[in-house]
């Protein structure tokens, strides 16, 4: 009993910095956002901020589908990539990993800026295409460019968790699968996929969450009809009317979307593993 008390006091003490941090920078700001979302300029409760969002249903849906697309593309690239890397020799694996993490050292704005100058109508890629007589391609200012920019920026966050889980699968499990009659395709389906489930789930979260709240990429690389929730929020804050309540309401919607999608994923991974990897 005495011992237990001691440890709980000790752990409380050790946890204190995190609790203070969380309260200051997570809980209180969240409360402020919710407060703004449900009050008018005079601090009176109102639902009008939420109801005005009816006008914004297009960018909200657009954000959802862009981020689902970007997440799916990241998964389709990252999974086979991780599979191939896991089969390399340890030295080559290290190099491959370095190339995955290297872009993470560079700031997102700079990467996006560079990407857009590469893909611009007069960018390097188009100049090269013209030079070989292929002609200009409309690489920028369209939906494809936005999704490409998101994939380009968030791909490492899909690869790392999947690679991490996959590289820890014991080789003897794969041998056992072959031994029991699995061809390499059915081995992936029956053993590797189920065992990498937790990695896939965290990869999806790591890519989907920043994707759905993306703002700079869509503004820089998209066309006029490609702005997303993130851009809307930015616009509400920066516009002359300084419409914080509507920005807060949009943020609340964004959080709700993320929360719901996490709950769905959580349920999925619970079924797989009997335990939850999120939240």
């Amino acid at each position: 009993m005495k011992n237990k008390n001691k440890t709980s006091v000790g752990s409380l003490f050790l946890n204190a910095p995190y609790f203070i941090w969380a309260a200051l920078f997570i809980i209180i700001p969240l409360a402020v956002v919710l407060f703004y979302a449900f009050t008018d300029g005079n601090g009176q409760f109102t639902l009008s901020n939420i109801t005005t969002l009816r006008d914004y249903w297009r960018p909200i849906l657009r954000s959802l589908w862009y981020s689902v697309a970007a997440t799916a593309i990241c998964l389709l690239i990252a999974y086979p990539f991780s599979y191939v890397v896991c089969r390399m020799r340890p030295a080559s694996q290290k190099i491959a990993n370095m190339f995955v993490t290297l872009p993470m050292w560079i700031n997102l704005l700079i990467k996006t800026y560079c990407l857009s100058s590469l893909m611009d109508g007069n960018g390097l890629i188009n100049q090269a295409l013209v030079a070989i007589g292929f002609g200009r391609l409309p690489l920028m200012n369209n939906t494809g460019a936005v999704i490409f920019g998101m994939v380009y920026n968030y791909l490492p966050y899909m690869i790392l968790p999947i690679y991490n889980v996959m590289s820890k699968i014991e080789p003897s499990l794969l041998e056992a699968a072959s031994d029991l009659g699995c061809s390499s395709v059915s081995r992936v389906r029956r053993v590797i996929l189920p065992l990498t489930g937790p990695g896939i789930v965290s990869g999806i979260i790591m890519v989907f969450v920043p994707s759905v709240s993306t703002f700079y990429i869509s503004a820089k690389m998209g066309g006029t009809g490609d702005f997303m929730i993130g851009d809307l929020i930015e616009g509400q804050i920066h516009s002359q009317n300084n419409n914080l309540p509507v920005a807060a309401a949009l943020s609340a919607v964004l959080m709700a979307i993320i929360l719901v999608s996490m709950l769905i994923l959580n349920r999925f991974s619970k079924n797989e593993e009997g335990g939850s990897v999120l939240i």
Binding site: S172, E175, A176, A177, L180, S183, L195
Partner: peptide, 27 residues
């Protein structure tokens, strides 16, 4: 290996952790 009518008992058993006893045996 998957086309040989030989099966192996591995040193550390190599049971599939994502499957229960029944599904391991039925694999």
């Amino acid at each position: 290996p998957y086309k040989r009518s030989v099966n192996t008992i591995f040193q550390r058993y190599a049971l599939f952790p994502h499957l229960n006893v029944y599904e391991n045996v039925a694999f």
